[in-house]
Computed example of a mutant assay.
Amino acid sequence: MTNAYDRVSLGKDSSGRAVTVNRRTKLMLELTAKASGVTPTIVQGSYRGANGASASAGTHDGGGVLDLRTWNLTAAQRNRWTAAARAVGFIVWYRTVLQGFTPHLHIIAKGDRDMSPSAERQVYAANNGRNGLKSNKVDTSNQGVPTFNYEAATAPPLPVGAYRVSLAAVAYAANGAAHFRSGQVVALNSAQNFHAWLLRTGVISQRNADVWARAIRQANWVGARSEYRAAIVRFQIRHGLTPDGVVGPRTQAKIAALMPRSTYRVVA
């Protein structure tokens, strides 16, 4: 698997300067273009450091931030690209003349670990319904933007019908009075398959998965069960269920409905 933060070139921007982004941002742009059918011209890329435009106030110093040309797009194209970008995980603002800018889209890849402090402040503003500018005006258009999971998006496809998941075993692993152990093979195997699916669908991060796997390897069953229940809670929050970490009937039904039958053989 490639490193999400390897830097790659996207050619030249509208002023002829080299455009550098990380692999995570590049993939997010590709997914947005595919979903929207629009590929805007880059005006300013990431990792600009001291070479960034003064009006950008340091937001382009690190990773995950770009400015995109809009004058050659129709309003429908701009809006379609913006909606697709937000669905992927970009915070998107349309900067205007009234705000003191040549009109353009200013975008930030939410969750990018390389972003500059200025960009982090803008993400905070977006999450709190503000416009990310000095004026700090209300702008709720970027609330609820998800965080893109690069590891899940680049994982190889699973073979058809490869994994068996017992809902009873998934429930036992989270709800059982005893902590699941390596000897309880059915419970552990189903829990591992379910956990892998949560990673692939972006419910948990690679870091969450690594912590859980390490607890299993070290026979730290208390820690493993704690991490597992935390993953269940994340699943429940995403799907509007009571976030109690208990795999009851409603959570089991949601799992059964969502797990792709082409890959997982879900049994009671």
Rank of each mutant, 00 (worst) to 15 (best):
N3R: 09
R17P: 00
L31F: 01
A33F: 07
A35P: 01
S36M: 10
G37R: 07
P40A: 04
G45M: 04
N51S: 14
D61W: 10
D61H: 14
G64W: 10
N72S: 14
T74I: 04
Q77A: 11
R78S: 14
N79R: 13
R80M: 04
W81T: 03
A85D: 07
V92G: 05
R95Q: 12
L98C: 00
H104T: 07
I108S: 06
I108R: 06
A109W: 12
G111Y: 04
S118F: 01
Q122I: 15
A125L: 09
A126D: 04
R130L: 12
N149H: 09
E151I: 11
G161A: 01
A168H: 13
A173F: 15
F180L: 13
F180G: 00
Q184I: 06
A191C: 09
N193W: 11
L198W: 08
R200G: 01
G202S: 03
V203T: 12
Q206L: 15
R207M: 01
A209K: 11
A219K: 14
G223A: 09
Y228H: 04
A230Y: 04
A231Q: 05
V233F: 03
R234M: 13
Q236P: 08
G240H: 01
G248W: 10
R250E: 10
A253I: 09
R265P: 07
